[in-house]
Design a protein around this nucleic acid. Structure first.
Lengths: 116, 116
DNA sequence: CTCAACTACTTAGTGTTGCTGACTACCACT
DNA sequence: AGTGGTAGTCAGCAACACTAAGTAGTTGAG
């Protein structure tokens, strides 16, 4: 998708993954696949795994090793209480940013509506 | 606002500034002030100036030095054709990302609506 | 049995970005 | 002369996503 997407994902990808985990626990490989399903087709596995390590170290998720039938054991990540708080904070930040950006977007296409 | 906002601004701040310039040309100090007005209260001047240097070097804006009554000359930035294209690309990327994130947000609050 | 392919995770190094904090410089007013 | 607002610059830092390679298990073809 390009450089813009790469830069834009900084800070949001973490929230996206936490949001996915909020729906239900998952392991890295699965999360990558789910991201691909949801349209983030060029997010590489390495990025996701690195992100998971980060959020684990920050204590936002609980980890359980679960044996897999088809390969090495899976590390299943579950959003915990702290992670839930962090995710809520993410949504607040996101909403704040998105509202302002949408306002700019709208303004450009409708410059006559001077709000302030 | 915190670390989350800092990270989230990466990649979007550039688009925000370009969008501001799309409305009308402006100089750095003014852009900073306008960002503050629009709610981005803790974006520091240094960041904006650095960003302006970047987009100038990429040829997304034209620059004109205009004398000021109250200080050093102003560097007035104007969005040019290339910048306009880049901004459109930014909006596409933004829309793509925002749609997917909103879907996630919605999904969490309405998990019964399974789309797939 | 060996090799490829898929699953699953790890790690070292790179580039971009926004922030911190200090600095230069110009003007007006006290 | 000194303070404060205007306007821009610069060096150094931390965080993040990407690249690219590697490890390790399982399955299936040759």
């Amino acid at each position: 998708m390009g450089k813009q997407m790469t830069e834009m994902l900084k800070g949001t990808l973490e929230g996206i993954v936490l949001a996915i985990l909020a729906v239900q626990p998952a392991y890295g490989y699965e999360i990558t696949a789910r991201l691909r399903d949801q349209g983030f087709s060029d997010i590489v596995e390495g990025t996701v795994y690195a992100l998971l390590v980060r959020i684990e170290q920050r204590g936002l998720v609980d980890v359980a090793k679960v044996p897999s039938e088809k390969g090495p054991p899976r590390k299943v990540y579950t959003l915990n209480a702290l992670g839930g708080e962090y995710l809520e904070e993410f949504w607040r930040t996101w909403t704040f940013l998105a509202e302002r950006i949408e306002k700019l977007h709208h303004h450009i296409e409708n410059p006559q509506e001077e709000g302030t």
